[in-house]
Write a protein that binds this DNA or RNA. Structure first.
Length: 509
RNA sequence: GGCGAAGUAGCUCAGUUGGUUAGAGCAGCGGAAUCAUAAUCCGCGUGUCCGGGGUUCGAAUCCCUGCUUCGCUACCA
């Protein structure tokens, strides 16, 4: 019986354009999903779009179309990007879908019946121009215009009732919020009394939302709408067996939505009697060329910029860089120079050149056929053992969701193959001992194949190409045994998988 | 303001409960080699481990203090 594994990205707000942030979260979630599939896990990978709210309503009005049409257009942008990268998600949920509306309304009604939701009147400062309530502090600072004191009646969720239970859960489950610094942030946050959560908006102020089942004059606002999708998609209230198989999830998110996922969401689930997520992993943000990304600075990494990188050295290279150098635990800088340096060092020099060396040697001395393994000597056994070690490291780091360390571990193994060749010097050995040369080249190719298999989730297109070149008719995406390489197979035609990027091109632009 | 994190080689960072000459990757320099995508392999860092004070036989690692950077401080991603 395979283990099940459920991983999610946030649902991206349709009005925001995809950029390096959303691309990063989604790419690493895909990578983690592929690794889990590789180990034989039954994976469910979810992404989607968050489509309700005032901004959507306003944008649609402005363009003279219905909110629904507006969402269709904008959701397509995300779908397009994900299909460009060939991502492997199993479901793409949109919060405007019927299946989701049904879950939201059912959960809300049930919480209302249990007394978890109550009606109350809030009085505060309201900015007419911006159409939102602002805090006393914002008002003092005078940032908003056209501010009036008004009161509004809304529905509230008794979040405060769950404060102690939540703290207990976080303390008892070190894996619940990660990395550890984010966990501390939340625990710090929870040292202050937790307030109840306002979960509605009167329809006169916001029409584009899910109607409260117990009050036709209101729609639900943000939280129940945008978070419950995580249980809608795997079949909550619609497919019990599926839901039981996959829930609880691992949520990959950016640090900007930490509180919603680590406080609002778990307390909502507690109230509804649903188990909490296994892990909420909040990664950091990319900076760009050493500075915070901003449109005015001109360093904003948008869709077009991403495509530019992909076109220059390939989508896989971009994906690889995201994983290897990305801001998993703290912020990380994306610079053109660093991007291409990493590409050259790891992919062109270490891996790509190694493919070339081994293929050409086999072509020259063995007519392009995979040589006999022979009796492995000390060095060959060492490579075999190192492969087992490498796999264990990869799987251990995968448990930690540390794709950064996963990539580093495999590249370290690739480096050891280059070192093995320097030590055994098959190009010299061939002059005196052809059988010995065969043994060396077999070991080198076996090691290379092994590393390619482990690199597959990071570089799916290129490693598929590699296995095509290997011509062993095996489907990529599985863990392989070092010694399972079949001798005698004629290798396919060799292509340069990662042509070196000329760093001088950087100077020019 | 309050709470918290961090400041280690040019860059990105490791450095377990204080203990022998402070490490890795990348970049740089030198060499070897030539099977290979000027790739690979080997070698090379006298770094005030942010400053100052203290505890200790001994501190990057503990305590105090100063400086700097950053995060959180909810119902606006």
């Amino acid at each position: 019986m395979p283990r099940s594994f459920y991983i999610t990205t946030p649902l991206y707000y349709v009005n925001d354009r995809p950029h390096i942030g959303s691309a990063y979260t989604t790419l690493i979630a895909d990578i983690i999903a592929l690794y889990h599939r590789m180990t034989g896990d039954d994976v469910f990978f979810l992404t989607g779009t968050d489509e309700h709210g005032q901004k959507v309503q306003q944008a649609a009005e402005k363009n003279g179309i219905s909110p629904r049409e507006h969402c269709d257009i904008y959701a397509a942008r995300f779908k397009e990007l994900w299909s460009y990268f060939g991502l492997s998600f199993d479901d793409f949920i949109r919060t405007t879908e019927d299946r989701h509306v049904r879950v939201v309304q059912t959960v809300l009604q049930s919480l209302f019946d249990k007394g978890e939701i109550y009606k109350d009147t809030y009085e505060g400062w309201y900015s007419v121009a911006d159409e939102l309530f602002i805090s006393d502090k914002d008002h003092e600072e005078g940032r908003y215009r056209d501010v009036r004191r008004i009161s509004e009646t809304n529905y509230y969720f008794r979040m405060s009732a769950y404060q102690e239970r939540l703290i207990g859960h976080i303390e008892a489950h070190p894996d619940f919020i990660r990395p550890a610094n984010r966990r501390n942030e939340i625990l710090g946050f929870l040292r202050q009394p937790l307030k109840d959560l306002c979960i509605s908006r009167p329809k006169e102020r916001l029409a584009w939302g899910i109607e409260l089942p117990f009050d036709k004059d209101y729609v639900t606002y943000v939280w129940f709408d945008a978070l419950l999708n995580y249980i809608t998609a795997p079949g909550y209230l619609s497919d019990d067996a599926k839901f039981a198989a996959y829930w609880p999830a691992v949520h990959m998110i950016g640090k900007d939505i930490l509180t919603t996922h680590c406080v609002y969401w778990p307390t909502m689930l507690m109230a509804a009697g649903i188990p909490l997520p296994k892990t909420v992993f909040a990664h950091g943000w990319w900076t760009s060329e050493g500075q915070k990304m901003s449109k005015s600075l001109g360093n904003f990494i948008d869709l077009e910029t991403i495509r530019g990188y992909c076109e220059s050295v390939g989508k896989d290279a971009y994906r690889y860089f995201m994983a290897k150098e990305g801001p998993l635990f703290s912020d990380s800088d994306f610079s053109r120079e660093r991007f291409y340096q990493t590409y050259n060092a790891d992919l062109a020099n270490d891996f790509g050149n190694l493919v070339n060396r081994i293929f050409k040697l086999i072509a020259k001395y063995f007519d392009g056929r995979i040589p006999e393994a022979g009796e492995p000597g000390e060095d060959e056994l060492a490579m075999m053992e190192a492969s087992v070690q490498c796999r264990e490291t990869v799987l251990a780091e995968l448990e930690e969701l540390n794709v950064n360390a996963v990539a580093a571990a495999v590249i370290a193994y690739v480096t050891s193959i280059n070192r093995y060749l320097e030590k055994t010097e098959p190009w010299k050995l061939a002059k005196t001992d052809l059988a010995g040369t065969g043994k060396v080249l077999y070991a080198a190719l076996a090691s290379l194949r092994f590393s390619a298999a482990l690199l597959y989730p990071l570089l799916p297109e290129k490693m598929t190409e590699f296995f095509g070149m290997l011509n062993t008719k095996e489907a990529p995406g599985h863990i392989v045994q070092w010694q399972d390489l079949k001798s005698g197979t004629p290798l396919g035609e060799m292509k340069a998988l990662f042509p070196r990027f000329d760093m001088q091109l950087l100077e020019k632009s």
